[in-house]
Nucleic acid binder design. Sequence first.
DNA 1: TTGAAAGCGCTACCAG
DNA 2: CTGGTAGCGCTTTCAA
Lengths: 332, 332
Amino acid sequence: MTVTLKDIAKKANLSPASVSRILNNRGRFNDDTAKQVRTIAQSLGYFKNQSAADLSQKQSRVIGVLIPTAHTNFADEIIKGMQNEAYENGYELLITFFGNDHQQQMQTVKALLSRQLLAIFMLAVDITLPIHQLIKTSNIQVLSISNQLNDGVPSISSDNYDMMSQIVNYLYDHGHRQMALIGSSMIEPVVATVRRQGFIDALAKHNIKYNPDFIWGNNISYELGLQTIPHYGTPLPFTAVISSADIISIGILNGAKDAGLQVPNDLSIISIDGTELTQLTRPILTNAKQNFQLMGELAITALINNQLSTNTAIYTDIEIIAGQTIRTLKDS
Amino acid sequence: MTVTLKDIAKKANLSPASVSRILNNRGRFNDDTAKQVRTIAQSLGYFKNQSAADLSQKQSRVIGVLIPTAHTNFADEIIKGMQNEAYENGYELLITFFGNDHQQQMQTVKALLSRQLLAIFMLAVDITLPIHQLIKTSNIQVLSISNQLNDGVPSISSDNYDMMSQIVNYLYDHGHRQMALIGSSMIEPVVATVRRQGFIDALAKHNIKYNPDFIWGNNISYELGLQTIPHYGTPLPFTAVISSADIISIGILNGAKDAGLQVPNDLSIISIDGTELTQLTRPILTNAKQNFQLMGELAITALINNQLSTNTAIYTDIEIIAGQTIRTLKDS
DNA sequence: TTGAAAGCGCTACCAG
DNA sequence: CTGGTAGCGCTTTCAA
């Protein structure tokens, strides 16, 4: 029922081999016959059977992409970047959502590995050890995007340590001396650890003694933001907060409103990520914008250039975008 | 280099055929040998080559999913629903982002059609005619989710006509007589047309004369919301707006703030969609919540039950979720 | 520039 | 319950 190369070949009095060459623009062939072949293919409604091609070539141009279901909305931006770059280089993206159910995760990864992928890109995903090992046995290349992992997985992300330094400096320059870091107190993802350390070290550089109470919140959620003000009580013991994600920042903003605080008069906020969410609030959130789209593009480039070795760590720059949530303090 | 069924068969003194049966739990086989085979497979680090399987079976369990790049964030919810259901029934989802570049769209669809998919699901996507025809020639089943299309494409969505009626009734019951509909004045997507008609007819049922000026805005965007108040000027000629999407509602909310209006005292807002975004605002948005997750689940179910004929139109219920953006007017 | 033929890894049929 | 085998549609030598 389905139209195959053979069918086209028969109709064109050619061999399947030639048709294959023509339709793939590979090798040499006569331009005139080529034109004919293409029209025939068109008229017959031919669709390449990619499975057969992959099988025959023992390789595909498919990149598997893992996205967390609890879909941090910057994933879109990364994908946008990847998609363009992938399209131009003839790669396909196989995007798969990655839930929390471990059973399901395993099955998902196995399904991916069952299609001789070129590579697996993980967007902001933290994988468990068994899964990591599963991938390892398959010899498929892996890359973590936006998330630094240990386990020797190559990554493309912001330099989270340096980012904290920039943020602290920014706040310091605006006269802030007491600042809190919200949403990075977990031990697990390396990113949180790195940010904490960067925060502490940056404070030290300004001779500010680090107050352990000022690092709080072990998850990334709106609710965490909402609870932040109640957690510390008013008057707040600090003048500024660094929020580990935009969604947290919105929670803080609303929590402040609920507590009768004025932002930025009573509290300054700077938000890490800088997705569109930061533009939807009143006041608009000052943010440390990560270049997600570029991360996506670089991911493909790195793959093409064979740079996905174990120790690769590519950094993209961040940019601090002034909004309306940072108050400049007169004297310190 | 790669481990194949044959390798396992050799090691287990079996035929590839048997190994295939065992590893797929198909047909009859001896449980003991099965156990052996599985351990061997494990130890050899075997991964099924799905391309070969698909080729051999001339069929795959893969459902292609098209998501607009301008990623209305309810897509996530739909996918969540689909993913669970798909997982339980052994289907794979091949998610593909669908940009605006026509060239790229074509290539994307062709890539999809090159893998004997079971079906293509389109999430809130409006396809152009050539693409529609392309899909048609391939005989792959299609389903539009959350978006009603013409062209005889089966769909799962809310009953947009009835939704408008419910919304208008809700506003009416709260004393509103002058209401506007924002973001549905485009001619193109059928959804907009249906909503307009539903709006007008619902008003008529309450003997409210329909004012054409009160249907405004031909796109779905934050900016549209922001411009709404300036567009009409204050004092507003209506007491309530129905916003065609959450992102528009947020724009309206901010626009109102900018104009010095109090919501809901000076303006009531009800938002269509009811994604998490509605919970992030102050005041919280009253909304007509669509059941996106259910749409996703039903999509898979419909596929399984072979219900994807041309005229299928499955509706899921909406629910009006009271927030803080509707004022009850005393007298009318 | 084109063709013949082998083979990718798996499944399905039919025999045993 | 198991094995032999043909064949899915495509690519890729190698030879013509």
